[in-house]
Amino acid sequence: MAIHPPADRIWWNEKLTAPEVIWISVAFVWGLIMFFAMIYWHAVGDQNLSNEAYKISPEVFAERTEAMVEKYKVREEGDTGIPVVRPPAGSDIYMLGRLWEWWPILELEKGQQYRLHLSSMDWQHGFSLQPANINLQIHAGYEMVITITPSETGEYSVVCNEYCGIGHHTMVGRIYVVDKKK
């Protein structure tokens, strides 16, 4: 039994049964398939995280974000005072996370590519785009750059899904995806 020393002292010479050999082979091959699936998706899939990231001080990142807001602000969101920014398609766009908001609100065109820069001003935050359900981890001092292509129009929420203190559940942001200007 499993709670006694093996009765057969030379247990490593035991012969394997057919079901064992088959199952081990199947499981091993399945592991290889799953491993190469990730590499395959890097080659042909449309959803891969870039490896582009930089060290950056929160101050510098905030300056770049503010510069974008100044240049491309189109309105404010209701009476919240939060700027809504509509940068040109193909450009570099910025969103910063800080206690407790994602800032600013971005307005993007459907089907266009943008280089999205993300960083935190303070603690770790979770960039969670809903209902698209794209989730990224954001750090202060690190700038993550990904190229996104919004595929559906609509109003998207950004919620924070990394605990960041007592106001965590109020930390939200927004991305509008609109049709291309005629």
């Binding site: 969101e77 919240t80 939060i82 908001e101 979770g126 969670s128 809903q130 209902p131 359900n133 929420s157 919620v159 924070c160 899904n161 990394e162 605990y163 965590h168 559940h169 109020t170 930390m171 939200v172 942001g173 927004r174």
Partner: peptide, 24 residues
């Protein structure tokens, strides 16, 4: 989780948040 509900989160109605968020 597959519907996007965040973990470690007190309020998925987002009542106190400055912007509305609608979870399904």
């Amino acid at each position: 989780g597959t519907l996007g509900v965040p973990r470690r989160h007190w309020d998925i109605t987002f009542t106190d948040a400055p912007l509305t968020v609608e979870m399904p």
